[in-house]
């Protein structure tokens, strides 16, 4: 067989050139296809944002932001939902950050390598993959029924905290791990105890990373819908929530109910779109803050 190849005229220069040309052609067209496929995401994002903004035009105004809910589209506003989402974050932020950072400190600084550490780590990565609707069932059963918190802001906030906890844990772990050992050494060599070193050296240095992760977790929580729906947030709440034990509605919930009811009243689609714009602007702001923190506190050692 090998002898044949040398005689085979496939290997003559002309043929080879043709073949190479063909291969380069295929390569170039493949590159184009791949590029288009990568641009597909951009295209969809563009259409989505364009559609939602155009649908919201004429509906998103001060009156919409400051009014209570109403069954009449012209009068309806999302003030209650904005307050609800805000109060939800008032619960989620401290609970998640305290639990998440503490867990990360335990895993990175105190736990010794072994079964327990592996168990907690595996558990957290699996928890991150549990569908949010399941967290809704957990919240409904444990917080809503067992602890009798109903569908209050507290119940919703605790449910949401558990849902986004893995995000904060993983981000904090990475931030703590990135603190160079020589800074710890400097502290220990001055006679500092472990907790002194962690609180005065490790955490301040890891803070930007922890904050970035926490903000990302918050932005996930602020847009999450399923757990709240499962918790049984009422469809129409006219009262603005006053404290964390009140029933409430939140921005994504409002989008959900208005979308469902477009069958009844076509203008609800515009209200949903206007609410989405508000939600996306909030997310955009949160993410920008995260990026600013990340850039401003870039490591200098």
């Amino acid at each position: 067989m090998e002898c044949k190849i040398t005689k085979n005229n496939e290997l003559n220069v002309e043929n080879l050139k043709k073949k190479i040309k063909k291969r380069i052609m295929i390569d170039k067209s493949a590159k184009l296809v791949f590029l288009l496929s990568a641009l597909f995401a951009l295209l969809v994002l563009g259409i989505l944002i364009y559609r939602i903004f155009t649908q919201s035009i004429g509906w998103l105004d001060i009156q919409f932001l400051t009014s209570k809910l109403s069954i009449f589209p012209e009068k309806a506003g999302i003030f209650g939902a904005i307050v609800g989402s805000f109060l939800l974050m008032v619960i989620v932020a401290p609970v998640t950050i305290i639990l998440g950072v503490s867990t990360a400190i335990y895993l990175e600084e105190y736990s010794s390598k072994g079964r327990l550490q592996t168990l907690i780590k595996t558990n957290i990565s699996n928890l991150a993959g549990v569908p949010s609707v399941i967290f809704g069932l957990l919240g409904l059963t444990v917080f809503g029924r067992l602890l009798n918190l109903g569908s209050s802001i507290l119940a919703g906030g605790l449910t949401m905290s558990l849902l986004v906890l893995p995000i904060v844990v993983v981000a904090s772990q990475e931030a703590i791990r990135a603190v160079p050992g020589f800074l710890r050494d400097a502290s220990y060599a001055m006679g500092a105890s472990k907790w002194t070193t962690i609180s005065r050296v490790v955490l301040p240095v890891a803070l930007p990373g922890i904050l970035t992760g926490s903000i990302l977790a918050l932005s996930r929580a602020i847009g999450e819908t399923a757990p709240l729906v499962v918790l049984g947030i009422p469809t129409l709440i006219l009262k603005i929530p006053q404290n964390i034990m009140d029933d409430f509605t939140a921005l994504p919930i409002q989008i959900y109910y208005w979308t469902l009811d477009t069958v009844l009243t076509a203008e609800y689609a515009n209200l949903a779109a206007a609410t989405i714009v508000v939600l996306l602007l909030m997310l955009f702001t949160l993410n920008s803050i995260a990026i600013i923190i990340r850039n401003k506190f870039q490591r200098r050692y």
Partner: peptide, 18 residues
């Protein structure tokens, strides 16, 4: 990353209305 950060409820609205 932006596409990944959009809440699923927004995708739901997009699917249904567009």
């Amino acid at each position: 990353e932006l596409l990944a950060g959009i809440p699923t409820i927004v995708y739901g609205f997009f699917a249904y209305s567009f």
